[in-house]
Write a protein that binds this DNA or RNA. Structure first.
Length: 474
RNA sequence: GUCCCCAUCGUCUAGCCUGGUCCAGGACGACGGCCUUUCACGCCGUUAACAGGGGUUCAAAUCCCCUUGGGGACGCCA
């Protein structure tokens, strides 16, 4: 049997800003589509608009895709370097009569649109130069000579059968008056040239698809499969915007989200596979074709992302989290004086993993572990509430018990610490509640913390005792 | 203005194609409870939806039409 053509997908951002959440999702879906069928995923940078494109944006997009682990095959294609290719194809269209020169000025075309609008018709170029048989000249553009009747139809992978009356389309410009090719032309030439078999892109491109199909037909090329994924909305159901705080993928990194959490969240936004919520990358690749791509816009819900992030934090190894944390400590309060020894940090992580929803929170919770005792910040209210005369006396009485325990032995086992404490309390007929909060404040400076004895273990004998003693002096 | 698309709990969605098994399932959130040395985790439970109106049919969340609401596109931007 003849092997089916292997799938080739691509992500084609324009470098006019960072990679936003919607773009990331289309990139992910395209990547998944390719990988799930053993195909190839390509990256193309659509920088034909030299005014708005920047190298910084290109780098930022590539960096964000790397963070999400969406690797593209080979090196990226840059449209700005392929103008000769596009122009030779435009010439070919001119020769075959599928395109023509037009001398109408932007103002004239705008007037045509106004007129059409006033008549309640679709605003479009009226085609007055179609048969003028003009040649090149200053200020002239090249337009496609599109069909004026009939329909252009295609099977959209997510929306189903889609068709547009050709009369709705106007003769779009292929080459600008400055000689530069336009978007739709470049896209078609590139997708064909790169061997793209499947185009998955944002909803905002549906209207371009028939125009591009017309170009494929004019060139006599095979038309790829198209799919248009719905947009992502903000909490107010309006288009996601800056007001919602979070559109750049890398901002999510800054906010302390793990890439696999974002990927999992994005995958489930507009796609579902039964009732499953948690997907490893491997499962995503395997299950993507089996799931449903939704066809209605979805609202970005940060709460659910948080939940997934908490899940993946719990799944992570302490070592990985320990390696990630210094960056967040530095961003919030700095790292001077902190003990950032990797294995020490790693020993803290298991206490924080069940508690933190983001790495930012985690850094905040980790701080008291890392600061030297004499710099530990005690919460004033906590001290006032929990370290009264009685409590201090109790801690002072408890001190010898903890001093008697061996560092590295008993202090490596929180159960031993707990047992010793319980024995001390039993001898005095006290409840555990009597010491819990005072001890916690003494050790951590706060009223909320991980388990007391686990905390003491991580701190170690020297540090733990020093903190209790310091608390007695406050 | 013109064309196109969409519509299930607050949110993400399953179900819709191939009507009955759905007084609509899961998840996040919210609320309540349990656990408990604090904070979390975890566990248990509650809340809450087929946009509205007409059809078709013995039977409609599922099929058709209209209305309403939302979105997108109409560039010498991408």
């Amino acid at each position: 049997m003849t092997p089916a053509q292997t799938i080739v997908t691509r992500f084609a951002p324009s470098p006019t800003g960072y990679l936003h959440i919607g773009g990331a999702r289309t990139a992910l879906f395209s990547w998944l589509l390719a990988k799930s069928e053993g195909g190839t995923f390509l990256l193309r940078v659509e920088d034909t608009d030299r005014e708005r494109s920047t190298n910084e944006a290109t780098d930022a997009i590539i960096q964000a895709m790397a963070w999400l682990d969406l690797a593209a095959e080979g090196t990226a294609v840059f449209q700005s370097q392929r103008f000769d290719l596009y122009n030779s194809h435009i010439d070919r269209l001119l020769e075959t009569g599928h395109a023509y020169w037009c001398q109408c000025t932007p103002d004239e075309v705008e007037a045509m649109r106004e007129k059409a609008r006033a008549e309640g018709k679709k605003p479009k170029y009226d085609g007055r130069c179609r048969e003028a048989k003009l040649g090149p000249g200053p200020g002239r553009v090249v337009r496609i000579k599109g069909p004026q009747d009939g329909v252009t139809a295609f099977q959209d992978m997510v929306k189903g059968p889609t068709a547009v009356q050709n009369s709705e389309l106007d003769d779009m410009i292929l080459r600008r008056s400055d000689g530069a090719p336009t978007y739709n032309l470049a896209v078609v030439v590139d997708d064909h040239d790169m061997g793209v078999t499947t185009v998955l892109r944002g909803d905002d491109h549906v209207a371009n698809t028939p125009k591009q199909i017309l170009l494929y037909q004019a060139f006599g090329w095979d038309v790829p499969k198209f799919g248009h994924v719905p947009m992502i909305l903000g909490p107010d159901k309006a288009k996601l915007s800056k007001r919602h705080g979070a559109l750049s993928v890398m901002e999510y990194k800054t906010m302390g989200y793990l890439p696999e959490a974002l990927v999992n969240y994005l995958a489930r936004l507009g796609w579902a596979c039964g009732d499953q919520e948690i997907f490893s990358r491997e499962e995503l690749v395997k299950l993507f074709p089996a799931g449903n791509l939704g066809n209605s816009p979805s609202v970005f819900d940060i709460k659910k992302l948080e939940w997934l992030n908490a899940h993946y934090i719990k799944q992570s190894t302490p070592e990985r989290l320990a390696a990630l944390l210094p960056e967040y400590l530095a961003a919030a309060g700095g790292t001077t004086g902190l003990n950032l020894d990797p294995s020490y940090l790693a020993s803290i992580m298991p206490l924080l993993q069940p508690r933190a929803k983001t790495l930012v929170e985690m850094a905040d919770m980790a701080r008291f572990f890392l600061v030297p005792t004499d710099q530990l910040a005690y919460d004033a209210k906590a001290v006032a509430d929990q370290l009264g005369p009685e409590a201090r006396q109790l801690l002072a009485d408890l001190l010898p018990t903890y001093e008697a325990l061996s560092d590295g032995g008993d202090y490596a086992d929180h159960k031993a610490l707990e047992a010793a404490t319980q024995a001390f309390l039993d001898a005095r007929g006290l409840k555990f509640k009597a010491v819990a909060q005072p001890l916690r404040v003494a050790l951590t400076g706060k009223t909320a913390s991980p388990g007391l004895f686990e905390t003491m273990c991580v701190l170690g004998k020297t540090e733990a005792l020093a903190r209790i003693k310091r608390a007695l002096t406050l």
